[in-house]
């Protein structure tokens, strides 16, 4: 078994090495990927089209906004699927955990976490809202926010984190995030554009078409942040307790 599995690996490796001799020069500005009209358009016109200084954010949330919506949906699916796989409705009675020793949460750890968590959360808002002008955005902000809840669960126990953010509320927040994203898309459709054509939002926002795109992107990023926050914590809560949602690590 071990040796036969080497055959596909060697074959794929041969193919990939064969192809990599043909790639354009390393870092060549004239390579097709760097000089194509698409990437030139992104670099040259992002400011004109959307007024967002961070091209990555503009491409992510606006030019390829549909991709990003589906990506958020993928995160949502992961949360749903993990809950569906691990949750066992038929066996409600608590499982005895003989091997686990209950230890009082450590004083130093809990107090440090007490200090750190608010900072992390504020930083996550900063990362989310500042995604237009610096590296950051909905996914990064959402992961940070989720990490703050995971930190609470790690330093005390899962129940404490779950009283702050119950699993049902997680799924509601995640669904609301997608609803916000797709809702902005549908709103721009209702105002006469295509799906996710944020420029049409100028009819309801007191700004220009470009700034409408700018603001709609923020809304979209907030939606992404909601979903990612909730699902990251839901994944941790379910995986660390095998779907029982108690005790944890």
């Amino acid at each position: 078994m071990k040796n036969t599995s080497l055959i596909p690996v060697v074959l794929v490796g041969f193919l990939l090495f064969y192809a990599s001799t043909d790639f354009p020069e390393w870092g060549d500005p004239q390579s097709p990927a760097s000089s194509s009209p698409v990437s030139s358009h992104f670099i040259a016109k992002t400011g004109v089209d959307t007024e967002v200084p961070n091209m990555v954010t503009a491409v992510l949330a606006d030019y390829r906004g549909f991709d990003t919506m589906l990506e958020t949906v993928v995160v949502f699916i992961a949360g749903m699927a993990v809950l569906a796989i691990l949750r066992n409705f038929s066996r409600k009675k608590p499982v005895k955990r003989g091997h686990e020793v209950s230890v009082e949460p450590d004083l130093i750890v809990t107090n440090t976490v007490r200090l750190v968590v608010p900072v992390i959360q504020i930083f996550s808002f900063y990362v989310l809202a500042h995604g237009h002008v610096s590296p950051g955005g909905g996914f990064q902000g959402g992961v940070l926010m989720g990490a703050s809840f995971i930190l609470i669960a790690l330093s005390w126990d899962l129940e404490r984190a779950l009283t702050r953010f119950p699993i049902n509320r997680c799924m509601v927040v995640a669904a609301l995030g997608i609803l916000l994203y797709a809702g902005i898309g549908v709103l721009s459709m209702a105002l006469g554009g295509e799906f996710l054509d944020y420029a049409e939002l100028e009819k309801v926002l007191p700004v220009s078409r470009e700034m409408a795109r700018y603001h709609a992107m923020l809304g979209v990023e907030i939606g992404v942040g909601f979903t990612v926050t909730a699902i990251m914590f839901a994944l941790y809560a379910n995986l660390s307790s095998r779907g029982r949602l108690e005790g944890g690590l």
């Binding site: 990927a33 990437s39 992104f42 670099i43 091209m55 990555v56 491409v59 390829r64 991709d67 996914f139």
Partner: peptide, 9 residues
């Protein structure tokens, strides 16, 4: 080029 970064996200 911003596109590969977006794709990788």
């Amino acid at each position: 080029n911003p596109l590969p970064h977006v794709l990788m996200l």
